[in-house]
Amino acid sequence: VDLVVEVAHPCVAQEHGEDILAHADFMLGSPTALAHEDTERRLRAAAARGGHTLYVPRGALWGCEDIERMDRGGTLTALTVTMTKAPQSFRLQGTLRARLAELVAAGGRGVLYEGPVRPLCALAPNNVNSMAAACVAAPRLGFDGVRARLVADPSVPDWHVVEVEVTGAGDQGRALRVTSTRRNPAAPGAVTGTATRDAFWSSL
Protein backbone atom coordinates (compact mmCIF):
# COMPACT_ATOMS: atom_id res chain seq x y z
CA VAL A 1 0.00 0.00 0.00
CA ASP A 2 1.46 3.36 -1.07
CA LEU A 3 -1.31 5.73 0.01
CA VAL A 4 -4.17 5.59 2.51
CA VAL A 5 -7.02 8.08 1.98
CA GLU A 6 -9.28 9.01 4.91
CA VAL A 7 -12.74 10.42 4.13
CA ALA A 8 -14.69 9.37 7.22
CA HIS A 9 -14.08 11.33 10.43
CA PRO A 10 -11.14 13.05 12.19
CA CYS A 11 -11.09 10.29 14.82
CA VAL A 12 -9.52 8.00 12.18
CA ALA A 13 -6.42 10.19 12.02
CA GLN A 14 -6.40 10.77 15.77
CA GLU A 15 -6.54 7.06 16.59
CA HIS A 16 -4.77 5.40 13.64
CA GLY A 17 -2.81 8.10 11.80
CA GLU A 18 0.56 7.24 13.35
CA ASP A 19 0.22 3.56 12.44
CA ILE A 20 -0.75 4.46 8.86
CA LEU A 21 2.21 6.83 8.43
CA ALA A 22 4.58 4.11 9.60
CA HIS A 23 3.74 2.17 6.43
CA ALA A 24 2.33 4.55 3.78
CA ASP A 25 1.57 8.11 2.76
CA PHE A 26 -1.65 9.44 4.30
CA MET A 27 -4.19 11.81 2.71
CA LEU A 28 -6.24 13.44 5.43
CA GLY A 29 -9.74 14.13 4.14
CA SER A 30 -10.75 15.38 7.60
CA PRO A 31 -8.08 17.99 8.41
CA THR A 32 -10.20 19.16 11.35
CA ALA A 33 -8.21 16.44 13.15
CA LEU A 34 -5.19 18.77 13.06
CA ALA A 35 -6.99 21.35 15.22
CA HIS A 36 -6.06 19.08 18.12
CA GLU A 37 -2.47 20.21 18.71
CA ASP A 38 -1.26 16.88 20.06
CA THR A 39 -2.69 15.06 17.03
CA GLU A 40 -0.92 17.41 14.63
CA ARG A 41 2.37 17.01 16.49
CA ARG A 42 2.09 13.21 16.55
CA LEU A 43 1.18 12.92 12.86
CA ARG A 44 3.98 15.22 11.71
CA ALA A 45 6.47 13.30 13.84
CA ALA A 46 5.19 9.96 12.53
CA ALA A 47 5.52 11.15 8.92
CA ALA A 48 9.11 12.23 9.53
CA ARG A 49 9.94 8.97 11.32
CA GLY A 50 8.41 6.75 8.66
CA GLY A 51 9.68 8.73 5.69
CA HIS A 52 6.12 9.22 4.46
CA THR A 53 4.01 12.26 3.56
CA LEU A 54 0.90 13.64 5.22
CA TYR A 55 -1.32 15.24 2.56
CA VAL A 56 -4.23 17.65 3.05
CA PRO A 57 -6.48 18.11 -0.03
CA ARG A 58 -7.88 21.56 -0.77
CA GLY A 59 -11.51 20.41 -0.81
CA ALA A 60 -13.82 23.41 -1.23
CA LEU A 61 -11.08 25.96 -0.45
CA TRP A 62 -10.69 28.29 -3.42
CA GLY A 63 -7.34 30.09 -3.86
CA CYS A 64 -5.39 27.67 -1.69
CA GLU A 65 -2.13 28.12 -3.62
CA ASP A 66 -2.33 31.93 -3.41
CA ILE A 67 -2.97 31.78 0.33
CA GLU A 68 -0.02 29.46 0.80
CA ARG A 69 2.26 31.69 -1.28
CA MET A 70 1.29 34.84 0.63
CA ASP A 71 1.75 33.10 3.98
CA ARG A 72 5.16 31.78 2.95
CA GLY A 73 6.21 35.27 1.85
CA GLY A 74 5.00 36.85 5.08
CA THR A 75 2.45 39.11 3.36
CA LEU A 76 -0.74 37.43 4.61
CA THR A 77 -2.13 39.38 7.56
CA ALA A 78 -5.70 38.06 7.86
CA LEU A 79 -7.82 35.23 6.51
CA THR A 80 -11.54 34.66 7.10
CA VAL A 81 -13.59 31.77 5.75
CA THR A 82 -17.40 31.99 5.82
CA MET A 83 -19.41 28.84 5.11
CA THR A 84 -23.15 29.05 4.51
CA LYS A 85 -25.31 25.93 4.29
CA ALA A 86 -28.91 24.90 4.83
CA PRO A 87 -29.59 23.78 8.42
CA GLN A 88 -30.06 20.14 7.40
CA SER A 89 -26.52 20.01 5.97
CA PHE A 90 -24.88 20.52 9.36
CA ARG A 91 -23.65 17.74 11.66
CA LEU A 92 -22.96 19.66 14.85
CA GLN A 93 -21.94 18.91 18.41
CA GLY A 94 -22.45 20.58 21.79
CA THR A 95 -23.54 24.19 21.96
CA LEU A 96 -23.73 24.56 18.18
CA ARG A 97 -26.36 21.84 17.96
CA ALA A 98 -28.54 23.77 20.40
CA ARG A 99 -27.91 27.02 18.53
CA LEU A 100 -28.94 25.37 15.25
CA ALA A 101 -32.17 24.10 16.83
CA GLU A 102 -32.98 27.67 17.90
CA LEU A 103 -32.42 29.00 14.38
CA VAL A 104 -34.53 26.25 12.82
CA ALA A 105 -37.36 27.01 15.25
CA ALA A 106 -37.13 30.71 14.35
CA GLY A 107 -37.18 29.83 10.66
CA GLY A 108 -34.55 32.31 9.53
CA ARG A 109 -30.93 32.80 8.58
CA GLY A 110 -28.41 33.12 11.39
CA VAL A 111 -24.78 32.93 12.41
CA LEU A 112 -23.94 29.73 14.26
CA TYR A 113 -20.34 30.61 15.08
CA GLU A 114 -17.83 33.41 14.59
CA GLY A 115 -14.28 33.19 15.89
CA PRO A 116 -11.03 31.25 15.48
CA VAL A 117 -11.15 27.96 13.59
CA ARG A 118 -9.57 25.76 16.27
CA PRO A 119 -12.50 25.46 18.74
CA LEU A 120 -15.00 25.16 15.88
CA CYS A 121 -13.40 21.98 14.52
CA ALA A 122 -14.49 19.90 17.52
CA LEU A 123 -18.05 21.25 17.27
CA ALA A 124 -18.48 20.73 13.51
CA PRO A 125 -15.86 18.11 12.52
CA ASN A 126 -17.65 17.04 9.33
CA ASN A 127 -18.61 20.51 8.11
CA VAL A 128 -15.54 22.74 8.35
CA ASN A 129 -12.74 20.80 6.67
CA SER A 130 -12.27 23.62 4.14
CA MET A 131 -11.62 25.98 7.05
CA ALA A 132 -9.10 23.53 8.48
CA ALA A 133 -7.42 23.31 5.06
CA ALA A 134 -7.09 27.11 5.10
CA CYS A 135 -5.29 26.88 8.44
CA VAL A 136 -2.86 24.33 7.00
CA ALA A 137 -2.28 26.54 3.93
CA ALA A 138 -1.55 29.52 6.20
CA PRO A 139 0.54 28.11 9.07
CA ARG A 140 1.71 31.56 10.24
CA LEU A 141 -1.91 32.28 11.16
CA GLY A 142 -2.83 28.66 11.83
CA PHE A 143 -5.92 27.37 13.59
CA ASP A 144 -5.89 30.22 16.11
CA GLY A 145 -5.36 33.06 13.62
CA VAL A 146 -7.64 32.07 10.74
CA ARG A 147 -11.18 33.30 11.41
CA ALA A 148 -14.31 31.25 10.83
CA ARG A 149 -17.91 32.23 10.28
CA LEU A 150 -20.54 29.49 10.07
CA VAL A 151 -23.99 30.46 8.79
CA ALA A 152 -27.23 28.46 8.60
CA ASP A 153 -29.53 29.64 5.81
CA PRO A 154 -32.69 27.74 4.77
CA SER A 155 -32.85 29.71 1.51
CA VAL A 156 -29.92 27.69 0.06
CA PRO A 157 -31.19 24.09 0.41
CA ASP A 158 -29.06 22.74 -2.44
CA TRP A 159 -25.96 24.95 -2.26
CA HIS A 160 -22.89 25.22 -0.04
CA VAL A 161 -21.46 28.73 -0.23
CA VAL A 162 -17.83 29.31 0.79
CA GLU A 163 -16.51 32.86 0.97
CA VAL A 164 -12.78 33.42 1.48
CA GLU A 165 -11.53 36.86 2.50
CA VAL A 166 -7.78 37.45 2.25
CA THR A 167 -5.97 40.54 3.53
CA GLY A 168 -2.35 41.26 2.65
CA ALA A 169 0.26 43.49 4.23
CA GLY A 170 -0.51 47.19 3.79
CA ASP A 171 1.46 50.20 2.68
CA GLN A 172 0.54 53.66 4.00
CA GLY A 173 -2.84 52.46 5.20
CA ARG A 174 -3.64 50.55 2.02
CA ALA A 175 -3.75 46.75 1.89
CA LEU A 176 -4.48 44.06 -0.66
CA ARG A 177 -7.92 42.54 -0.13
CA VAL A 178 -9.33 39.65 -2.14
CA THR A 179 -12.73 38.03 -1.62
CA SER A 180 -13.82 34.92 -3.50
CA THR A 181 -17.25 33.28 -3.34
CA ARG A 182 -17.72 29.65 -4.33
CA ARG A 183 -21.27 28.34 -4.79
CA ASN A 184 -21.01 24.58 -4.64
CA PRO A 185 -24.05 22.52 -5.76
CA ALA A 186 -25.11 20.02 -3.11
CA ALA A 187 -27.89 17.52 -2.62
CA PRO A 188 -30.36 18.62 0.08
CA GLY A 189 -28.99 17.58 3.45
CA ALA A 190 -25.58 16.60 2.08
CA VAL A 191 -22.50 17.43 4.14
CA THR A 192 -20.25 17.72 1.08
CA GLY A 193 -20.96 19.51 -2.20
CA THR A 194 -20.53 17.80 -5.56
CA ALA A 195 -17.68 20.05 -6.72
CA THR A 196 -15.79 19.34 -3.50
CA ARG A 197 -15.71 15.64 -4.36
CA ASP A 198 -14.27 16.49 -7.77
CA ALA A 199 -11.61 18.72 -6.18
CA PHE A 200 -10.75 15.94 -3.75
CA TRP A 201 -10.28 13.40 -6.53
CA SER A 202 -8.11 15.84 -8.48
CA SER A 203 -5.85 16.09 -5.41
CA LEU A 204 -5.22 12.37 -5.73
Rank of each mutant, 00 (worst) to 15 (best):
G29F: 00
G29K: 00
S30R: 13
P31W: 00
P31Y: 02
T32A: 10
A33S: 11
A33H: 00
A33M: 04
L34S: 09
L34Y: 04
A35D: 03
A35K: 04
A35F: 01
H36M: 06
E37S: 15
D38N: 09
T39D: 09
T39G: 05
E40V: 02
E40C: 10
E40S: 13
R42H: 10
R42W: 05
R42Q: 14
L43M: 00
L43D: 09
R44P: 03
R44F: 09
A45Y: 03
A46I: 03
A46D: 11
A47T: 06
A47N: 07
A47Y: 07
A47K: 06
A48S: 14
A48H: 10
R49K: 10
R49H: 10
R49S: 10
R49L: 01
G50N: 03
G51A: 02
T53G: 05
L54K: 10
Y55G: 07
Y55C: 05
Y55F: 15
Y55A: 06
V56D: 12
P57G: 08
R58M: 03
R58S: 05
G59E: 13
G59Y: 03
L61S: 09
L61N: 04
L61D: 01
W62Y: 11
G63M: 02
G63P: 07
G63K: 03
G63I: 03
C64T: 07
C64W: 06
E65H: 11
E65T: 04
E65R: 14
D66S: 12
D66R: 11
I67H: 01
I67T: 08
I67C: 03
I67R: 09
E68R: 14
E68Y: 00
R69E: 14
R69M: 06
R69H: 15
M70K: 08
M70H: 11
M70W: 08
M70N: 05
D71A: 12
R72M: 04
R72L: 04
G73D: 13
T75H: 09
T75I: 11
T75Q: 07
L76I: 01
L76M: 08
T77W: 04
A78M: 03
A78D: 15
T80M: 14
T80H: 15
T80A: 14
V81Y: 10
V81D: 02
V81Q: 06
T82L: 09
M83H: 08
M83N: 12
M83A: 12
M83W: 02
M83L: 13
T84I: 05
T84L: 06
T84S: 15
T84G: 09
T84N: 06
T84R: 15
T84Y: 07
K85W: 04
K85G: 13
K85C: 12
A86V: 02
A86Y: 04
P87E: 03
Q88A: 15
Q88N: 13
S89E: 01
F90M: 08
R91M: 13
R91S: 15
R91T: 13
T95P: 09
T95C: 05
L96K: 06
L96F: 10
